[in-house]
Design a protein around this nucleic acid. Structure first.
Length: 370
RNA sequence: GGGAGUGUACCCAAGUGGCCAAAGGGGACGGGCUGUAAACCCGUUGGCGUUCGCCUUCGAUGGUUCGAAUCCAUCCGCUCCCA
């Protein structure tokens, strides 16, 4: 029911292509997962999402547990039918909220007690509870509950997060009781290569159908992250999908893929889209800038998305200046399509053994990291 | 004709003797955003010089004062009420 099949290997890096089979369809890797935190990729419909050539999307356990609650989602037959997306879904475990809502939580070895950002009520998330929620939500891929420490962090804090994440991974696996959902393990360790490798070994020993790198893009520089990935990713089990959580910018994706990553998720195309920022192969556009006011050009001449086929920059700028909701929608559609088109091109180039060419076709992916 | 108000920067609007180049909001301009507390957040918004300072500015003109957006006189514009 869940299977990962590698297909091509880039000769000049650890990059590879593959296909992930899930109960709701296949995912071509390397894959980019748009984020639909509260069960919706903000601002666009599932149809529009599908039209960007997206295979799989991400939803968030913490947010859905608070509202509408996992029981309500289960009552509707699970996430797929509740949100009207019939493709594969991955749910985050809430581990990232341990980081992003740090001021609202208290961590101990049992789990994390959050003060709800919605009404202040107390919600505790333990590995068991996170998995129970994710079992009810019914995504195709679910994630172990981890502790994601911010960077830079003290060696003691990073080490403690690693050991706790390992303990929580075991508990997550024990708690998981649905065979139609693949539970991925998460590796922590900050930028410490030895600690990362130690964590990989421990998590791999527990045994999961996929492995994620968490705790990156949380405060470190692009160079630091890439340096770490280049020494760490290829130590992850080679025959299982590798998922770099929360990343990222186009250059981060290419660098991650070269290090051997197969899956990514990131809010950038949607959040930045809503905030009037558009990605293109050669540059980024701030859609509100006055210079676009009279532009009859699309966001990206080379893009085949709905937005670029039908609307001018001048009009899209107007929508943002007038605070029309269509602006964020059109920009989000474009950005997700941009990411997916780039990923498709990357898969093609890996299959051709010529991934290096991506730097010419997508200059924005050029990296300053070694 | 009589009476009562009012005029501040691109717009609205505070300020009623010095701490005022002038609050706040809007608009405009620029920047940021990496497992989403984000259709959000930050900065700039009279001129000239890189601290800090100088210059011009609160309807207009003239005056009082060491000092005026603030007080006085006159004028101009606008609003409302009574005829």
């Amino acid at each position: 029911m869940f299977e990962f099949k590698k297909s091509a290997q880039d000769p000049n890096s650890y990059a590879r292509t593959g296909v992930l089979s899930t109960p709701h369809g296949q995912v071509r890797t390397p894959a980019f997962m748009p984020v639909g935190t509260a069960g919706s990729v903000k601002g666009i419909t599932p149809d529009q999402l599908g039209a960007t050539d997206t295979d799989i999307m991400l939803c968030n356990t913490y947010h859905l547990a608070l509202r509408p609650t996992a029981d309500v989602v289960a009552e509707f037959g699970g996430l797929h039918s509740f949100i009207g997306w019939n493709g594969p879904i991955l749910t985050d475990s809430g581990g990232f909220q341990v980081f992003s809502l740090a001021e609202l939580n208290h961590i101990d070895d049992d789990g994390v007690a959050f003060k709800s950002h919605i009404d202040g009520s107390l919600i505790t998330l333990t590995p068991e509870h996170s998995i129970e929620i994710q079992n009810k939500l019914g995504a195709d891929i679910i994630m172990a509950f981890d502790q994601c420490p911010p960077l830079p962090g003290t060696p003691e804090d990073i080490k403690a997060a690693v050991e706790r994440t390992i303990r929580w991974a075991k508990r997550s696996k024990t708690a998981h009781n649905r065979t139609d959902q693949a539970l991925f393990g998460i590796v922590q360790g900050g930028l410490d290569v030895n600690l990362r490798r130690h964590c990989i070994d421990a998590i791999a020993e527990i045994g999961f159908p996929g492995y994620a790198l968490g705790g990156l893009s949380v405060g470190e520089t692009h160079e630091e992250m890439v340096t770490c990935l280049n020494q760490v990713t290829h130590h992850m089990p080679e025959d299982k999908p590798r998922y770099l959580m929360g990343v990222g910018m186009p250059r981060d994706l290419v660098a991650g893929i070269r290090s051997g990553i197969d899956m990514f998720d990131c809010v950038l195309p949607t959040r930045n889209g809503r905030n009037a920022y558009a990605f293109t192969p050669t540059r980024s556009l701030k859609l509100r800038n006055a210079g676009h006011a009279l532009s009859h050009a699309p966001i990206d001449e080379t893009c085949d998305c709905y937005t670029c086929r039908n609307f001018t920059l001048g009009y899209i700028r107007h929508l943002f200046m007038a605070k029309e909701m269509l602006g964020p929608t059109l920009a989000s559609i474009h950005n997700i399509r941009f990411f997916q088109k780039m990923m498709a091109r990357i898969r093609d180039l890996i299959a051709q053994g010529n991934l290096e060419r991506i730097y010419e076709e997508y200059p924005v992916t050029k990296t300053t990291a070694k």
